[in-house]
Design a protein around this nucleic acid. Structure first.
Lengths: 359, 359
DNA sequence: TTGCATTTTGGGAACGTTCTCAGTTATACT
DNA sequence: AGTATAACTGAGAACGTTCCCAAAATGCAA
């Protein structure tokens, strides 16, 4: 077992030169049909696969994409299907492009600077996809300074003119969510924010504020609770908001919305009768809550796939940084917003926003 | 930015040979103190990092470990913290050994054979860690046949004498769980199995049967429901079992136990008053259920870390396949088994099994 | 000072590819 | 048949390291 063939062995056995074998392996033109067949037969028979390191050395491309999640696996993956979906989108697109995925996760309690160094020192990857990084993370500076190709999965708030990113229109999403609640006649609409040190959270808040302003509803600071996208943040944020008696809440993620619903129900209140809820993401969790979540759908897997494609385009020189790709969001109406209880108003709204309801 | 220095550049600037720079970089002996300092200074100043591909080419080691999860990210990571924890253990150990982690996941609906080929073709990894693979997966055959170094995270049921693995004593765990229920005086103890095509599931069932036999309790096939570790399997398995009126259930994973509890509560029954439950894993979910789960703790992160260490030992030639590492399990008593309602019996049991109760 | 051992250094080959370029053979057209 | 062109093939250099071995420098004892 093992101990590998080299291109030389194949060449010798097939009675051709290394060059020809190389051409066959890389599926290049200008190889005689019969020669090609013979070489392929030998490759098959001797079970040859090219040595990636040698290949990488001369081509300067490793066919490896680094996926950076600046934290631990349990934080990113447990109790949260956003990152699994994103990762699946990335991995699948990578597979389709013959790329391998190097997963860069943090150790528990690893200092940011140390994490950065670890990523940077790794010269194995052609480029990086960076997800969920905070605006002030030093990794961003280092990447800008010394990594030629990388794509962020959120809008960066520094170096915006130099960093490529793929994201959705979070401002629009936040606005859609809030406008929907407004159109249903809610008066005291609260917001549980996401992580404000990440553009996704910041922008959804901006969308919320924009919707209020457009509707002429004065901003009430007491109705905004600062969270971090998580279940716990949703739960505690909602608990804190209860004293302000909101009649509806736009929550920055479905997971947090689940927490909020829990808090509402623990307080003996009902969703949506007492408090209407709109979430964000439209992941599986949205239909596992009771009631099902009205939410803003974002194409998470697609974001990952687009990021891979973009990164490869950058690496291949087909595109140049900065590229900013913004995918659309969509309002999905289910039960948690109480639209079914307030149908009269809704009818008007549907026309305005052209949202697509889902089972 | 970018466009990299080579060892030659460093050598030239520092006024030494490539060999010396190499020695400094690899922290080898036989370099003069002052020379070393000078070289290090230049490396620092020019921000040099060695080219991994070149290094890999000559050393025949890439410092990359492949982590294989034969399925999609959402299946492995969503709604389940076992794999995130395992991954964290692996990644963290990898980080500590200067290894990078290549994550090999399946595409949606990808045929097994296709997946295998994709893994095999990748000549980038020094070795693989394979988790949650089914016994009859063709990947196992291919690995045995042509991959020199790999470690499975479950006991393989084929090629047992050739494959190294790291796991816990699942038979003992299943037995502990069942014996605990027996010792609490339960009469009709059911079992919702895990995936029987994976040794973990098979062995936990074996442990269940062994405990029954040792206690002289006749085996009742109607009390065994076949699941796959998942929430849904737990829910549906329990629903099906209800007609058999079990008074206790050993469920093959905490996630499935959560499903089982849900099913019991949906049927208007109480845990543990009407049905006692023992789970398996002791992950965070165990203390997020109501009531908290009595369960069998297995050191998931440690399993991952041990697997990495073992793999590196195999690759480095310090150990030879097959190595079988079996870590211990431990009964953790909380509320779901009803021990608190049946204290008299418990007192006796604690001495027998020396389990460690947890907050 | 000499000689010998030890530490330190450098040169060259090797790792397994790709890629450029030149050379050879086949094809097509007059 | 002769020539221009296209298709095909091979030789050699290069990619950036490590590693072996020999050479040089140094230290130490006689």
């Amino acid at each position: 077992m093992s101990d590998h063939m080299s291109i030389k062995d194949i060449a010798r056995v097939a009675g051709v030169s290394r060059s020809t074998v190389s051409r066959v392996v890389n599926n290049e033109a200008h190889v005689n049909k019969h020669t090609r067949a013979r070489v392929l037969e030998v490759i098959e028979r001797l079970n040859y696969t090219p040595n990636q390191a040698a290949r990488a050395l001369v081509t300067q491309r490793s066919q490896v994409v680094g996926v950076v999640l600046p934290g631990t696996a349990n934080v990113f993956f447990a109790d949260n299907s956003y990152f699994p979906m994103l990762l699946q989108g990335i991995v699948e697109a990578g597979n389709n492009h013959e790329q391998s995925m190097l997963l860069c996760l943090g150790n528990v309690d690893e200092p940011r600077e140390h994490f950065s160094q670890r990523i940077l020192r790794n010269r194995m990857c052609d480029g990086f996809i960076i997800a969920s990084i905070e605006n002030d993370d030093p990794l961003i500076d280092h990447l800008v300074q010394s990594v030629p190709y990388f794509v962020m999965m959120e809008r960066p708030q520094r170096y915006e003119d130099r960093i490529s990113h793929v994201t959705v229109d979070n401002v629009q999403g936040g606005q859609l969510a809030t406008q929907h609640l407004i159109s249903l006649g809610y008066q005291r609409i609260a917001h549980i924010t996401g992580h404000l040190n990440i553009a996704d959270g910041q922008d959804r808040l901006t969308g919320y504020l924009k919707a209020l302003e457009l509707a002429g509803i004065p901003y009430n600071a007491d109705l905004v609770s600062y969270g971090r996208f998580s279940f716990l943040a949703g739960y505690e944020g909602m608990k804190a908001l209860l004293s302000q008696h909101p009649d509806a809440v736009f929550v920055s993620s479905d997971t947090a919305a689940r927490g909020a619903i829990q808090a509402i129900q623990d307080a003996g209140l009902r969703v949506p009768e007492d408090i209407g809820i709109v979430g964000f993401d439209d992941l599986d969790v949205a239909t596992k809550t009771t009631p099902h979540l009205t939410t803003i759908r974002q194409p998470v897997q697609q974001k990952g796939a687009v990021a891979v494609q973009l990164l490869l385009d950058l690496v291949g020189g087909h595109k140049h940084s900065p590229q900013h790709m913004v995918l659309p969001t969509q309002l999905v109406i289910r039960q948690s917003c109480g639209a079914n209880l307030r149908e009269r108003t809704l009818a008007k709204e549907v026309q305005l926003q052209s949202e697509v309801p889902i089972t």
